[in-house]
Write a protein that binds this DNA or RNA. Structure first.
Lengths: 131, 131
DNA sequence: TATACATTCTGTAGTAGCTACAGGAACAAG
DNA sequence: CTTGTTCCTGTAGCTACTACAGAATGTATA
């Protein structure tokens, strides 16, 4: 039993974003108080946390919607969820390896550029010639 | 000496995106042939590769613009580039650690969900309860 | 040369996923 | 009862593209 403002503070998600999620169908239509204001409960906190983590980690809203839909029907086969996860896993691994390369370059750059000039920086070369 | 179409095929960047980069000021205004069409050379291929890699790795266009500007003035101090890189490095490390956690969860999920039901999947819990 | 098809041009509008208002209604505190 | 906060809907803006429309060229073939 809480207002959208409280849910927002609790979750760190902007009020506008919460309303947007409802509009986009990733959060269910909120129950309304007699005065028309949205009312939330603990379950919504969880759902919102789920959405945020999934988003931060690269799931698109359509995938989030799909995962949440699966969650509501636990008697179904896991095949769909598993496929979603496999696709996501491949994307995650690709990102990880590219980010690892970039991290090394950035570290080297920060070290090398302490007092140097741009001409000594390798980060631009590194980004141009990555394969 | 090549057309926008050739540059597009060579770089794998859509023609519209190349024009957008020009409009957005990350690519310089292209030289024009007498008939008004854009003409590119080898240098543009490099610049485009640079932009794509930087974008894929999470640099925003404003950062890309800043890095490219630095590249044009190699006599300047590297301080600005170094600061850009440090900020980027922090973001990269945060992403790396969260992606590593997610990868483990996704792997576990794919393994566990082979023939199970959704009720046996932990990925939803995992995403809800990450801290 | 005529016709057909491809390429490019500008400009505008659409996309995802938010974020930021404006204008109005309702509520809570002093 | 006034002031300030919260909430409502609706619309517009943002980034980084992507996809048209309609017109003007360019190239290839009959």
């Amino acid at each position: 039993m809480m207002s959208i403002g409280t849910l927002s503070k609790q979750s760190g998600v902007h009020i506008e974003t919460i309303r947007y999620y409802e509009r986009a169908g990733v959060l269910p239509k909120a129950r309304r108080a007699p005065n028309g204001r949205r009312v939330y409960d603990h379950e919504d906190t969880g759902r919102l946390a789920f959405i945020r983590h999934a988003r931060e980690l690269g799931f698109e809203l359509v995938s989030v919607r799909a995962l949440l839909a699966l969650q509501e029907r636990p008697e179904l086969s896991c095949k769909a969820a598993s496929e979603l996860a496999s696709a996501q896993l491949a994307a995650v691994e690709s990102r990880l390896s590219r980010l690892t390369v970039l991290r090394a370059e950035l570290k080297r750059m920060v070290r090398a550029c302490k007092n140097g000039r741009v001409v000594d920086c390798r980060v631009i070369d590194a980004l141009t010639n990555m394969r």
